[in-house]
Nucleic acid binder design. Sequence first.
DNA 1: GCCACACATAAGCACACACTTATGCGTTTC
DNA 2: GAAACGCATAAGTGTGTGCTTATGTGTGGC
Lengths: 104, 104
Amino acid sequence: MMEHDIFRALADPTRRAIFEKLANGGMNASALRQGMDISQPAMSQHLAVLRAARLVREQKEGRFVNYEVDPDGLALIAQWLAKYRAYWPARIDALKLLLKDMDQ
Amino acid sequence: MMEHDIFRALADPTRRAIFEKLANGGMNASALRQGMDISQPAMSQHLAVLRAARLVREQKEGRFVNYEVDPDGLALIAQWLAKYRAYWPARIDALKLLLKDMDQ
DNA sequence: GCCACACATAAGCACACACTTATGCGTTTC
DNA sequence: GAAACGCATAAGTGTGTGCTTATGTGTGGC
């Protein structure tokens, strides 16, 4: 299940931090480790999980592997969220999220 | 962390199924168990996790406890998702999710 | 009052998972 | 070609988590 991979991937705080870091610009695995107190294998494993969830995608450049946010994963979350738009709180003004013509 | 509770809650397929079931209408814990092959304590524990994540809220009615979708949790997911709207895929036509004036 | 019921909580167990160290693989550099 | 580097993978370990059975708590019906 695809949405299962996504939610499971985001359930880990370290992976969310990695994802958030990548959202500010793609970088390679070593650069991602800066200031994160995480071993190289751990980072590699986290990136593999994020990749499987399509939240992140890789772009091999020589011996470096540049990682960046994969829009596909975000789209899947949005699709999941859209299923429950009937419950989106109209009263929360700060959240002006609108959905149009999303019927299937 | 609030978003941590949410993603962790949704990482479990059984809890996602419970949530989806509640999205089709609120009901009590026993009714939720119908056709789910899950023990009463397991259901109670899952509901506690969903409640802590604000994905579900309870409404006590006598000795029954009616559960229903809590919009607050969904709003928090939407807020998390909105942080990455720069990466939302414009090319995915099926997803016509629009965000307006969401700056903080 | 007493039993049946709906649900929550406690305690224990098996498994998933995030980490570690060690090693392998491919690329760049000299 | 050999060493250094970036990254992936293997194998092992401790902790978290979802389940179970057993029991507790509160409500309604007789």
